[in-house]
């Protein structure tokens, strides 16, 4: 794995490997000293063309727990109108020694462009591009769901997939990079996915996607999903006639108190609710739902750091492993095994 650009081209073996590595990373995060020397001397650049404090600090925490040096670069707004191109920015950062570029961009495909244009050699991690993909969000969702599914089935999660799990993804599918990345990854891991949205917020061309489509959230809940993923809806969409009003959206596609109660009525005691954040409480999700024991929202945030540690670790210590090891083997480091692979720190 040279880059992490999308979940569509992620094999099942790679996906499970990332999730299993993330489990090991999660164990590190539970320790008193939450740090591994694995990426010591490596530099990770967070290149953010779009504001996203949550994602940026998650990547920053992940890189720092692996002992990498972190450079944050916020290229706000339209970079071209301000002068410097993506190419120049990326080459500048690489010239300063970036080994990996974590890129968040408002334009779909910008990370692919960075990885395939030949402008730079660094590993590229897509931290969300336009309405295309957000692979690390999908991985943290899958990680969270896999733990839930393992608990439901009474097994350990390492090495498992999501076979048989039923997941509803609800909301603005059209503009959601999370929905796309989730769908490809959850399908790869064996889950069944239903997309629930008003017809205006489903893309033309969705018919070929490996999922069921529904316009009716109550009907989708009656089909007994094991997890419900609520997507953020931007109220501005209302002005572009995607739906008549925020209230109507909330009544028809919001996870409100009535639907929270419906899960109990259906006897779905294990069904969980996810949301990638930030939440619009009262629009796509009610406070009661967001704060209920079913809510996985904070677990998702916590798992995000583990999954991003795993991704950075696998990308940067993979083909350059010999470099990493020679650095880790210098006398005053922690034992080599802990420095190069966190296997022995495994939980359980």
């Amino acid at each position: 794995m040279k880059h992490l650009l999308s979940t569509q081209d992620l094999s099942k073996a790679d996906a499970v490997r990332i999730l299993d590595t993330a489990e090991e990373m999660a164990a590190v995060s539970d320790r008193e000293v939450k740090k591994l020397p694995a990426l010591r001397g490596r530099t990770v650049v967070n290149l953010f063309f779009e504001d996203s404090t949550r994602t940026r600090i998650s990547f920053e925490a992940a890189a720092k727990r692996l002992s990498a040096d972190v450079i944050n670069f916020a290229a706000k707004g339209s970079s071209v109108s301000k002068g410097e191109s993506l190419k120049d920015t990326a080459q500048t950062l690489e010239a300063m020694g970036a080994d990996a570029v974590v890129i968040r961009h408002w334009a779909s495909g910008a990370p692919v462009r960075l990885a395939t244009s030949g402008w730079i050699d660094a590993a590229v991690v897509n931290a969300g591009d336009g309405t295309h993909e957000h692979p690390t969000q999908a991985l943290l969702d899958a990680f969270t769901l896999r733990r839930t599914w393992a608990r439901t089935n009474g097994t350990a999660s390492a090495g498992t997939d999501l076979s048989g799990m039923k997941i509803a993804i609800v909301g603005d599918i059209l503009h959601s990079r999370v929905a796309r990345s989730d769908l490809w990854l959850l399908r790869t891991l064996g889950a069944e996915v239903t997309m629930v949205a008003p017809p205006t917020l489903l893309p033309v061309g969705i018919d070929g996607w490996p999922c069921t489509i529904s316009y009716d959230l109550d009907e989708a809940l009656a089909k007994r999903p094991d997890a419900v993923m609520m997507l953020r809806v931007q109220a501005e969409r209302m002005n572009a006639a995607f739906f008549p009003s925020a209230r109507e959206y909330s009544r028809l596609w919001g996870f409100d108190d009535r639907r929270l109660a419906a899960l109990d009525d259906h006897g779905l005691s294990d069904t969980v609710i996810l949301h990638p954040g930030p939440m619009n409480r009262g629009l796509e999700i009610s406070s009661a739902a967001a704060d209920s024991p079913r809510s996985m929202v904070l677990q998702q945030v916590r798992n995000g750091v583990s999954v991003r540690m795993a991704a950075l670790y696998l990308l940067l210590s993979g083909e350059s492993r010999s470099t990493a090891r020679s650095q880790a083997d210098t006398p005053d480091t922690v034992p080599a095994a802990a420095g190069t692979a966190p296997t022995e720190e495994n939980a359980s």
Partner: peptide
């Protein structure tokens, strides 16, 4: 609009030109 609106634009997440 960025590209033809259809199966490919749906996957690529680009605004469609129908």
């Amino acid at each position: 609009a960025q590209m033809n609106e259809g199966a490919v634009s749906a996957v690529l997440g680009m605004a469609g030109w129908p």
